[in-house]
Structures are given as C-alpha cells and as structure tokens.
Nucleic acid binder design. Structure first.
Length: 577
RNA sequence: GCGGCCGCAGUCUAGUCUGGUAGGACGCGGGCCUUCCGAGCCCGUGGCCCGGGUUCAAAUCCCGGCGGCCGCACCA
C-alpha cells in the first residue's frame, strides 16, 4: 500500500522528500509553523550550493576574467528610485469582494474613468473608486480596499525614521552605482564584466513551488559592459558552437510554433539573437549540462515584449524542463542597454560614462559664452543659456558665426554673436554610456534542477557528477571492530586534510551504509577490510556501477582526486575486485 | 489575495465520521551478531501545526491563524 502510494508521488514530491529528510532543503522557521517563500539549506544543501556557485565562478571569474564584488543587500532608497524599481515594483492593488479577482487599482481607475492615474496615492485611488462607485470589471462585485503592494522589502536605516532603505530586488544595482571605480579597475577598457553572487529579496504575493519562487533567493549576476557602437562580446571560449533549442518571439506567437535547434553561431548569423546574448546562452548551456542537467531539457526562450522588465530591450531566458512545473526560467540574459548607467548618472549627478580615445584627435569648434554680455541681456535665463551654448559643437568656425539659437525650457532663444566667443577645442576621444548585457542566474532554481535532473527515481538516489556531490567520499570499516574502525577513521581524517568532503559511517551493516551513501549521491566509498590490515590496501566502490577496485592506501588521495576530476576511469583506478 | 482539498514522531501511516487523552512500520541511537551491497535479534529515542472556544473530557467538534498541494490572480 505505502509502496503503491510512493509510486503515485511525482518527481518533485520525491525529490523534495529526500532533500528534506537528508538535509538538502528544509522549510525555514519550522518550529513556528514555517514561513512561506523561505527555505533553509541544510548541511548537504549548503555544500551543494557552494559547489554550484563555485562552478559559476569558474566560468565567469576564472575563465572570462570578470571582476567579482560583494556589496550590501540593503541599499538606500535613492538607488532604487534611480533604477526605476520604486516606480515599477510598487503597485497599488485592489480586489473584488465577490469573485476575488485581483486588480491594479491605478489601471482600473485609468480604464474606467479615462484619466491618468499614474502617481496617484493610495488614498486618492480609494477615494476615486468610492466616489465613482467603481465595480469589479469581471463580475460587478464590490471592490475591496486599495493597498500598496510592495514587491520590495522596505525599511529604515538608522534610529527612528532614518533614511529610506530597500532590500535589493536584484544584485545588479550595486554594480552600476560603483561603475566609476570598476571601470578604472578594468583599465578603462571595454568590454569588461563585473559579477556578484548574493541574496536578493522580493515580497512575492504568493510564493509556491518550494525553492522555485522564494522571497529571499540567491542570484549570480554578471554585468557585461559593451561599447554600443561595437556591441559584441569577444569571448575567449567556443560557447558559440553549442547547439541549443531556440524559442524566439515569432515562434511563440504562432499556433504551431516550434523550437528551433541550431548552433549559437547560426542563430547569431541569422539575426535570431545578438552576439553577446548568444555567447552567454551557449556558456550557460554548457554549464548546466556539466551539472548533470539533461541536454534536451534546456532551451532558450525570448521574452515577449509584454513580459520584459522596465529596463530591458531584449531578454532571453534559459529554461529547464521540470517534471511538475514544465519549462522553468533558471537564467535570464537581458540587454539592459544604457538604461541603468544613464539613470544613475541623472539621479546622482555623477558622470558614469566611458571614454574612448580616438586614433587621431579631432578639432572642433564651440561657442564659449561671455557672461558679461549674456547676463545683462538675458538676466535669470543666462545660466541656462550658457549651459546650452556649451553643448554646441561644430566642425567648422563658420557654422557658429552670426548668432545661434538655443532651446531653453521649450523656448527658442536667439543668442547674438557678441554673447559668445568661438573657441577651438581638441577632441581626443568620445564619451558614451556603455551598454550592459546581463546574464542573471537563479542559483536556488538551478540547485533544484540539479537535484531533480540527477535524481534516479528507480533507486531513489542522486547521481550527481562526482565533482558536484556534496559528500565526495564515504569511508567505512567492513566490520565494526576496533582495529578496522581505527584504520577507517584515520583514512577519513587524512582525506579531509586533503580537502575532500568525507563521511565516515560504521553503523548498521555495510550494505546499509552503501545505500545511505548512494541516496545522497556519494560517488565513491572506501572500505577498510581484513586485507587492509594485512597489506594496507582498501577498496573503492563506484556509486553508479557498484563495482569495486582495490588500491594502496597511500595512493588513495591521488586516485580519488583523479576520479572526482574525471581524469581517470574507474576501471583503471586499481585492481578490479 | 480568493476558492477547494489537507496538516499525527525524521518519513509513511492507523485512529477523526460516532469526543474518553495515540498505535504500527521504516528511520535514528545503543547493544548482540562479525557480515561487501538497505540481513537478524534486543533495548532505547521521538508525535497529534499554533491559538482560542464548546465540553467533566478535544488528534477528533466549532472559530481564527500558520503551513502544504491544486485552480484563479500575481510573478516588472
């Protein structure tokens, strides 16, 4: 009966059950009844997560050479005002008391009354709804109170009121606001990349699906700064040769739309994806496959215009197919253009532009305002006019002669020639806002995909790639006898000193210990037996074949390292048993 | 946030309808056994999601909360 029931449960349920029982993932705050949208990583989960993050670093930091920074998760309000998150992340909501339908209060007022409701306060929206007796557009029911739905967690910094702060809804902003220093550290040369791995927070209305939608989650983001005039990322690796399933907007809109399988380089050539996005799609696919995710269950799907974020011009998700949830976004690669740097420049007053030196300096001409003339002539408008004049550049002196027209506050103003002096200026380069292509990884989702895709439902165990297994080596005495126990403990200690994650186990029978190790995906188990005591050799058991080889104890660390790094085949690791 | 179903040791579950104070299996810890693939035997560990109400008495009935699953909505 219970066996039958076990088979009824879907993969998600089984994976989560093992994960909970063996300490990968557990609901937070359990003794207080749990907290939706929050999960703890248990001992094995924390190890696994670290290995995933480290693999990510291998790709982005060690191989691409991107700079890694780590910034606070709590940032002051101005940052998110500039980034657009305050406007785009806080929605006034209302709902129907009859049918329970949920609405954006401002959209509803706009549609029903035909007025611009943007920026209206909660109270004003509430008043408009009551005054005009607005009803539910679905069923005509009475509407509930208007509440501010705040996707960002807001707090105060400092005592009392203090300064506004938000827990970051994405890690990216911290990178943009440090652009000046980062650019300098990159020797002021584009392209360059900056990464960050860290927590981000979103107060989701209704988080579900375990670790797939969390209120606190881990992002690994890379911001790749590119020259908009040559918006390519010349990667040093061959990820563009990866084959991938592409699901572009046009196919999604067709009734019989299908995914197109091709190499990244072909997709770039055909104009399906931009080169930098393509490069990181290919990179991502290779990384996911390395983590044991099924190649056929990975695709690149382009965002439809209506689902794009406020900052994105184009965005492709890398999705992984899961048993229960279908295609799930695990990585988003967005073209953020110069949106963020421009906004932060405008809001902070800092110039966050890059500079490129020209091969040959150019001579340009510009009007330099003469304030003694401008002042008496235009009074209080003079400073603004001067500012506008300084913006004007010309190829030749003649273009500026005989007076100029500038626009100030929407008004055309004629500036007579005696109000400025034409000066010659040497231009040595151009200043511009770099564009940003952002591959953004949801580490928690990837971790769940890794669990599900490496889960063997027949045996009820994880078959992680050896390098990824949270516990790399199990060490057991064949019998729970003092001499074997001592020997095995010593081996376990020595392997730990060599940097392996090791589990020593002497409880129950040897078969039970292998089974326990299999369940959490331990790739190799070392057993101390009678021969070990005689001749200092041990057996290594391979998780996936259950075959064993016998090796000398003093070569054990080296052999295990080779096995885990995939440098030696198991059959060649020692004498077959 | 709405509606439906649900909540008992680490896991799976009997008991809930009909109120009388919780039983099993696996796991886990210890012991025996001395054994290379979840063996056996003995001992032990551990539970009614939280709060309130009804009642002499609540796992059981009622209300509220929290949490889980499904559908809707939300997920820039």
């Amino acid at each position: 009966m219970s066996e039958e029931r076990r088979e009824d449960r879907d993969l998600y349920e089984r994976v989560m059950e093992v994960s909970r029982r063996r300490g990968f993932l557990l609901p937070s705050c359990r003794i207080y009844g749990g907290a939706r949208g929050f999960y703890d990583y248990g001992p094995l989960g924390a190890l696994l997560k670290r290995k995933i993050e480290e693999k990510w670093r291998e790709y982005y930091v060690y191989r691409e050479g991107f700079m890694e920074i780590e910034a606070p998760t709590l940032l002051i309000g101005e940052v998110f005002e500039a980034s657009g998150h305050v406007d785009h992340f806080i929605d006034p909501m209302t709902y129907c008391r009859e049918c329970g339908e949920f609405f954006r209060a401002d959209h509803l007022v706009e549609e029903e009354l035909g007025i611009d409701a943007e920026g209206l306060s909660i109270e004003e929206l509430e008043r408009l709804i009551r005054e005009h007796d607005l009803r539910c557009p679905e069923c005509g029911g009475e509407l509930g109170e208007v509440t501010e739905f705040n996707l960002m967690f807001r707090t105060n910094i400092g005592p009392k009121e203090g300064r506004d702060g938000y827990l970051r809804p994405e890690t990216a902003q911290a990178i943009f606001i440090q652009f000046k220093d980062l650019y300098r550290w990159a020797r002021q040369r584009l392209p360059f990349g900056v990464v960050q791995i860290g927590r981000a927070y979103r107060n989701e209305i209704s988080p579900r699906q375990g670790v797939i939608r969390l209120r606190e989650f881990t992002q690994a983001e890379a911001e790749v700064f590119l020259d908009p005039e040559d918006k390519r990322y010349p990667g040093r690796w061959d990820y563009e040769r990866e084959r991938l399933l592409f699901y572009p907007i046009e196919e999604q809109r067709k009734d019989d739309g299908e995914m197109l399988e091709m190499r990244v380089e072909e997709a770039v050539e055909e104009g399906l994806v931009s080169q930098p996005i393509g490069y990181f799609l290919g990179l991502t696919k290779r990384m996911l496959v390395e983590m044991g995710i099924d190649e056929g269950a990975i695709r690149a799907r382009q965002h439809l215009p209506e689902e794009r974020a406020h900052y994105a011009r184009d965005c492709w998700d890398v999705e992984v197919r899961l048993d229960r949830f279908g295609w799930v976004e695990v990585v988003g690669i967005a073209d953020r253009t110069d949106y963020d740097l421009r906004r932060h420049s405008e809001h902070s007053g800092e110039d966050l532009r890059a500079f490129e030196e020209l091969d040959e300096p150019r001579i340009v001409y510009r009007p330099e305002p003469i304030m003694e003339k401008l002042g008496p002539e235009f009074k209080s408008d003079a400073p603004k006019i001067a500012e506008e004049l300084r913006r004007i550049k010309a190829e030749s002196r003649e273009e500026l002669e005989g007076g100029l027209t500038v626009e100030v506050d929407g008004e055309e103003i004629e500036v007579p020639p005696d109000c400025y002096e034409i000066v010659e200026e040497k231009v040595t380069g151009r200043r511009f806002y770099p564009h940003v292509v952002e591959p953004s990884y949801g580490i928690d989702r990837i971790l769940y995909c890794v669990l599900e895709h490496n889960f063997d439902p027949e045996e009820g165990m994880f078959r992680f790639p050896a390098w990824l297994a949270p516990i790399e080596v199990g060490v057991f005495p064949l019998l729970k006898r003092d001499d074997m126990v001592r020997y095995a403990r010593r081996i376990a200690r020595e392997l730990r000193e060599e940097g392996f994650t090791v589990e020593y186990d002497d409880s129950g029978s040897i078969g039970r210990r292998y089974a326990r190790a299999d369940e959490i995906g331990v790739p190799y188990c070392v057993t101390v037996d009678h021969d070990t005591l005689e001749e200092d050799t041990v057996t290594i058991r391979d998780r996936d074949t259950t075959e064993q080889v016998r090796v000398p104890v003093d070569e054990l660390p080296e052999i295990l390292r080779g096995l885990i790094d995939g440098e030696i085949e198991f059959e060649e690791a020692g004498e077959p048993v």
